[in-house]
Write a protein that binds this DNA or RNA. Structure first.
Length: 675
DNA sequence: AAACCTCGAGCTCC
DNA sequence: CTCGAGGTTT
């Protein structure tokens, strides 16, 4: 980059950041996510660091936050409210630790780790134990007096209670005003019902609520506070930060949970990572952890640079939000005929992953977000996996966006689209819609169903598109002539395919039933029904009431199955399948052993990758032994078998106090039992 | 209300 | 493999 480019980019960044600062601090209507702001800010910081000549005093990097607005009385913080330096990696953290050790002049140091709550920084002054003044941070030196608003915060004590010893004459508690996710969601639901706009996220909502001119409005918002330290103090306080936190807690001001003290760098890092793992399950948002030197007596020694103390830093978690553009919205037709809108995004990297697609779920979701094609949107990778469109950045609209019109006809076959009153999804009414057929066939051949090796999703679709397969039965009476001619299919693979189709005829009734793709009849329900009725003939004859009488099967499933039964072509299909030699009855080997074992009646959940067994085999073993397998952990789960790379389920099990065992232990118990 | 299930995602690793 | 929305069942 040549100098002029750098200079103009710096200029551009400053303008952008200043504008966003204004929107954030003064208008309180941020138009970009914090992560995006951080990105811009760091780009600017980096460019300035590399080109110190271009730094000017008015650059946003040289000031902390924006000037307070005129609406509130200004208050000067007796002790400035500092901001924090950031580290983003273990290396960064190690460098910070090394620096601190150098300035402290010793290697033996204690550090505290506490969550960095994503809220609004606030200062609370207590005089003789009575809440006297509340203020925002402002620019760090001067903030706004929001005492009246703070009095409405439910977990902020008006008076401090001291169980032991005197309360300091003057005590300035510093903390973060925030909203719990759950309460934020409730508030948004209520606002929606009242036809009020939703808030984008808990932090913006908290910031807005705290700066309401009418405290009665603040009182209606679910604000809470976590204290993380103290500012000015007249009187005695402990010299260790961890003890100060304990004192604050004892005085009645809430502090974040699980703050820990570590002297070992590895343990410190582990604590940071632990918070990263807990992050998704917390009822409040955190954007990192704060690490502080525990001994406050060392602070003067270690010092402060600019407005950042050197004795504390923030380990910022990787961004979980990003901004991108919706290039198109596509409608997919699922196996059940449901219309599923899928947003095509301009690829964007979030937390080290490139996101290109995101589901919009249904019509209501599109309406709720009020998204248009071409819109700039905030995308979040929540809970680590599924990307989600959070909100539209309306300010970025140019007028070139256009509404997405929900189709009245199936985009694949042109049939009418129907949405039952009270249901979220719309369906294509055409039962033989090619899109549905394609999905149905690939479901039928899939692993959980008939498990036809060599006939995967791709090939199944090809056969459907070429008209070779029009129903499940066609799979078993394929015309092989055109197939052997097909590109990419050699002699060998055709032989293998023939054999695995033949083998699949031996799949148990439950799998066949599941493969049929009857609405609401998934793996579990198929098991129940197959075990109860024992044959396709019995199922076909069963009345709706008889079906509903099966434990675990209710009205809706019974209705769905009996509707399916009532279709003549389905009866013909069952006949065909029977003629073609598929198993339409259960046999003894499918029945579970009758002698009760230690497994009988247990609810077991499998998670992660097992080494010696496939998941299906493990489930089969468990079922035979009389246990039930479930897909999610709840308080009622008896046992969780944890494999490699287990995810949230293992954590949840620990939360609930459910017993967890590894594969070795599982095999051992299994063995003992079958002997 | 809680537990569980279905179904359609999207990503990663193979 | 896992998640999450939208369901159903108890």
């Amino acid at each position: 980059m040549v100098d002029t480019d750098v200079q103009s980019r710096i200029h551009e960044l400053r303008e952008l950041i200043n504008r966003y600062n204004h929107e954030y601090h003064v208008l309180q209507q941020p138009t970009i996510p914090d992560a995006e702001w951080d990105r811009l800010f760091h780009e600017l910081k980096r460019l300035e660091d590399e080109n110190p000549d271009f730094i000017t005093a008015d650059s946003p990097t040289q000031t902390v936050g924006a000037a307070p607005s005129e609406a509130f009385e200004q208050v000067r913080h007796e002790a400035p409210m500092l901001s924090l330096s950031n580290v983003f990696s273990r290396e960064g953290l190690n460098e910070w630790i090394a620096r601190v050790r150098r300035f402290a002049g010793r290697d033996e140091l204690e550090f505290t780790v506490e969550p960095k709550i994503d809220g609004v920084a606030a200062s609370l002054v207590y005089r003789n134990g009575v809440f006297d003044r509340g203020a925002t941070r402002g620019d760090g030196m001067v903030g706004e007096n929001v005492t009246a608003n703070m009095r409405t915060i439910r977990d902020l004590p008006r008076t401090l209670t001291s169980p032991n010893g005197p309360i300091p004459e003057v005590l300035e508690v510093r903390g973060e005003v925030y909203m719990r996710r759950s309460e934020f969601d409730l508030m948004n639901e209520a606002r929606e019902e009242a036809a009020l706009p939703r808030f984008a996220n808990p932090r913006n909502a908290a910031s807005g609520a705290l700066r309401q001119l009418d405290a009665r409005i603040t009182a209606e918002r679910p604000l809470r506070i976590f204290a993380y330290g103290i500012g000015m103090v007249v009187g005695q306080i402990p010299f260790k930060h961890s003890d100060t936190l304990a004192l604050i807690r004892a005085l009645g001001v809430p502090t974040p949970p699980d703050t820990g003290v570590y002297s070992d760098a590895d343990e410190l890092w582990a604590a940071c990572e632990a918070w990263l793992e807990w992050r998704a399950d917390l009822d409040y948002e955190i954007d990192g952890v704060v690490i502080k030197v525990n001994d406050t007596r060392l602070y003067p020694e270690i010092g402060t640079v600019a407005r950042e103390p050197r004795w504390a830093t923030a380990f910022k978690f990787p961004a979980s939000q990003g901004v991108t553009v919706i290039e198109d919205i596509e409608i997919n037709v699922g196996r059940t005929g449901s219309l599923n809108p899928l947003a095509h995004l301009k690829p964007v990297e979030i937390g080290g992953v490139t996101i290109r697609r995101a589901t919009l779920h249904n019509q209501d979701e599109i309406r709720r977000l009020a998204v248009k094609i071409g819109d700039t949107v905030v995308v979040e990778r929540a809970g680590d996996v599924i990307p989600k469109i959070v909100s539209v950045v309306e300010e970025n609209r140019t007028g070139d966006e256009h509404d997405f019109i929900w189709p009245e006809h199936c985009p694949v076959c042109g049939s009418t689209v129907e949405r039952v009153e009270g249901e979220a999804l719309s369906y294509c009414v055409n039962a033989s819609c090619p899109a549905q057929l394609r999905e149905q066939i690939s479901h039928f051949v899939s692993r959980g169903a008939m498990d036809i090796e060599g006939l995967g999703t791709k090939l199944a679709r090809r056969f459907v598109d070429d008209g070779l397969i029009r129903s499940f039965a066609d799979i078993y009476r394929l015309n092989w002539e055109p197939i052997v001619e097909m590109e990419g299919l050699g002699e060998k693979s055709v032989e293998n395919l023939k054999r695995s189709i033949e083998n699949s005829k031996q799949r148990p009734l439950a799998r066949l039933l599941f493969g049929l793709g009857i609405r609401h009849v998934g793996q579990q329900t198929a098991d129940l029904i197959a075990a109860h009725f024992g044959s396709t003939d019995a199922i076909a004859k069963a009345t709706q009431d008889e079906i509903a009488a099966v434990p675990g099967v209710g009205k809706v499933i019974a209705q769905s199955l009996s509707d399916w039964n009532a279709e003549e072509r389905n009866q013909l299909l069952l006949n065909d399948l029977k003629q073609l030699g598929l198993r339409t009855e259960i046999d003894e080997s499918e029945r579970q052993s009758t002698t009760p074992t230690e497994w009988t009646g247990l609810t077991v959940v499998l998670t992660g990758r097992l080494e010696t067994l496939s998941r299906g085999d493990a489930e089969g073993l468990l079922k035979k032994a009389g246990a039930r397998t479930s897909s999610s952990v709840s308080r009622k789960t008896d046992l969780v078998i944890v494999g490699d790379d287990a995810g949230s389920k293992a954590d949840k099990a620990r939360d609930y106090g459910v017993e967890t065992i590894d594969e070795q232990e599982f095999l051992r118990r299994m063995k003992m039992d079958t002997d």
